[in-house]
Computed example of a mutant assay.
Amino acid sequence: MNQSKIWDAYSKSYHNIEKNPAGFQFSLLNMLRVNEADEILDAGCAGGHLHQYILQQRKKDCRLTAFDFSLEMTKIAAARMIKYLNNPFNSQIEDISDQEIENVDLNSPLLEQNKYKVFQGDVQSLPQLNDNQFDIYISNLVLQLVANKDQALQEAFRVLKPGGKIGIVIPVVLGNVPMLSLQKCFIQAGLIPNAAYKPTELENREGLINFIYKHGFKEIVCWNQTIPFDLFDIDDNYIFPQFREILDKASKEQVDQFYSLYKSEVQNRLNLNLPFTVEALSLIAKKPL
């Protein structure tokens, strides 16, 4: 299955858990000062969980543009914003029906009137976007998934205005307790032979800072952050798409063994009065004038 189809299939589960990384995103948006921008780009927006917040914080005439590799994710983001914009004071944007998502118009006049645009796109090639267009480029939990990271940063640099800011969040594999716990249970159940996820060169401050410098950005600020995950019981929403594919092909015996191990892993964590936590490395930087 190709990557876009994997994330299409995972879109509704991701929609349910997307709130967890909000701690990273709120910190990033605060450091970027989104309230001062005229044009904001959310590159790899998933279901647009924080777009409501950005719309509330932005300047009156600021335009928010967003895209995702998965068409299903963009449809969720658009449906979510249409529901919010139709009734901003009494709207449960989480309660979006499958029909609303399936039938959503990505080019809805309501979205355009509110200076909001979402489309399917690839961070590695953005012919839809102009040079020097945006004040802020947001890359939240995206860059680690991209095949050609250099090309993605070149595109980010191109579409940012001189003096524009990029904001990046990279998950740290060795600090991702839910992922490590799932991986451990998969190995013990015989579903994978060994650790599938290794740290990348971007998961330490020096590596990430050097990578951003290499692509021409300046005035870099970088920090680590850890947040809790609301994982208190076995929940299929937290089985990431790469693992879901493996489970779908496994024998019933192996699947049952995995869920038994997973349940014990969750309970053992709770017995220690500890939440499942996720660590990320965040960074902001400027395109020189």
Rank of each mutant, 00 (worst) to 15 (best):
1 M>Q: 04
4 S>P: 01
9 A>Y: 08
9 A>P: 00
10 Y>L: 00
11 S>Q: 06
11 S>G: 11
12 K>P: 00
17 I>A: 09
21 P>A: 02
23 G>V: 09
23 G>N: 12
26 F>V: 10
26 F>M: 11
27 S>W: 01
28 L>M: 09
36 E>V: 09
36 E>D: 12
37 A>H: 03
41 L>M: 11
41 L>S: 04
47 G>E: 08
48 G>E: 00
49 H>F: 11
50 L>S: 10
55 L>F: 06
59 K>P: 05
60 K>Y: 03
65 T>K: 05
68 D>R: 05
70 S>D: 08
71 L>P: 07
73 M>F: 10
74 T>K: 05
76 I>H: 03
81 M>V: 00
84 Y>K: 06
89 F>R: 14
90 N>H: 09
92 Q>R: 12
92 Q>M: 08
93 I>H: 07
93 I>V: 15
93 I>M: 13
94 E>Q: 13
94 E>I: 15
95 D>N: 14
98 D>W: 09
99 Q>P: 10
107 N>S: 15
110 L>H: 03
110 L>C: 01
115 K>W: 12
120 Q>E: 15
122 D>K: 04
122 D>H: 04
128 Q>T: 08
130 N>Q: 14
132 N>E: 14
133 Q>S: 12
140 N>V: 07
142 V>F: 04
144 Q>L: 14
145 L>K: 11
148 N>S: 12
148 N>G: 05
149 K>L: 06
151 Q>T: 11
153 L>G: 02
153 L>E: 02
155 E>K: 07
159 V>A: 02
163 G>L: 09
164 G>Q: 11
166 I>K: 12
166 I>Q: 09
166 I>F: 06
171 P>T: 02
171 P>H: 06
173 V>H: 07
175 G>N: 09
179 M>E: 09
180 L>P: 05
181 S>W: 00
184 K>F: 11
186 F>I: 01
186 F>E: 03
187 I>R: 03
191 L>V: 10
191 L>R: 11
193 P>K: 13
194 N>A: 13
194 N>Y: 14
195 A>K: 13
196 A>S: 10
198 K>A: 10
198 K>H: 14
199 P>I: 10
199 P>W: 07
200 T>R: 01
200 T>F: 05
201 E>K: 14
202 L>V: 04
202 L>H: 06
206 E>W: 04
207 G>R: 04
207 G>P: 07
208 L>R: 06
210 N>I: 07
214 K>W: 06
215 H>F: 14
218 K>V: 15
223 W>G: 12
224 N>H: 13
232 F>E: 14
233 D>G: 06
235 D>R: 11
238 Y>Q: 09
239 I>A: 12
241 P>N: 06
242 Q>T: 15
245 E>D: 13
250 A>S: 15
253 E>W: 11
255 V>I: 13
258 F>D: 02
260 S>A: 15
262 Y>F: 14
266 V>E: 03
268 N>K: 15
274 L>C: 02
277 T>M: 13
277 T>F: 03
278 V>D: 01
279 E>Q: 15
283 L>K: 00
285 A>R: 10
287 K>S: 03
